[in-house]
Amino acid sequence: MEKVFIALGSNVGDRERFIRKAVKELSAFIKDIKTAPIYVSKAVGFENQPDFYNTVVAGYTDVEPYELFKMVKDIEKNLGRKKRFRWGPREIDIDILFYGNLIIDTEELIIPHPRLHERDFVLKPLSDISPDHIHPVLKKTVKELLLNLNNRTIISCTESYPQG
């Protein structure tokens, strides 16, 4: 079993419900899930849209990386994610942040997530559950990455945890 970290985000409809449903579906193949609080953040990229709810979950899986990627995309589809445009509104967005210490860089899949170190809405919840996890490419802890980040988008914390 490999330890995985998954980011979840939503800014369309009942954002918290979408995240909770995604965590429940992830728990079918990710064991011992640990969840961070849900944070509210401003949109990045295309900024003229509703604020996002974001969190990170960690757990263990024996599902191979490419199959895991397919499974999280299936969850997005099952929960009603509509294709819009890059960085546009999303019912649910699910990204694999880390898969053990694996480094994958293909057209289909990049692990670690290529922009996680630029985003406080990923680093803060990740730091809440695993501050000492070392980024296998950058060789810095999540806590160090967060402390060195200049761009901040988090507005608040909902104080809720997205248990499935």
Rank of each mutant, 00 (worst) to 15 (best):
K42W: 08
E64F: 13
I129P: 01
H133T: 13
L146P: 10
N54Y: 11
V4K: 03
H113V: 05
D93W: 05
P37W: 10
K124D: 00
C157G: 09
A7M: 04
V56Q: 01
K82S: 08
E47W: 06
D93E: 06
P136T: 01
K82I: 14
E47G: 07
S160H: 07
E16Y: 13
D62W: 11
K140N: 11
Y66P: 09
I96Y: 05
S156M: 04
R20K: 15
A22H: 08
C157N: 15
R90I: 00
G88C: 14
V4H: 03
N148M: 06
I154H: 14
D14Y: 12
A28W: 07
L68E: 04
Y66E: 14
V40G: 10
I129T: 01
G88F: 14
E107Y: 11
T106G: 03
A43M: 06
I96N: 05
A36F: 02
T61R: 00
A58H: 01
N150L: 07
K24P: 03
I104C: 07
E25T: 02
D128N: 10
G100N: 03
A58D: 02
V72D: 06
A28Q: 13
S160T: 12
I104Q: 07
Q49H: 10
L138N: 09
K83E: 14
K42M: 13
Y39K: 05
R84V: 15
L26V: 06
N150F: 06
P65Y: 07
M1T: 11
I129A: 02
L138K: 15
Y99G: 05
L147K: 15
A58N: 03
V142W: 00
P162T: 08
K77T: 14
R152H: 08
F29N: 04
P50I: 02
S130D: 13
V137R: 10
I129N: 01
I111P: 11
R86T: 10
K31W: 03
D14I: 07
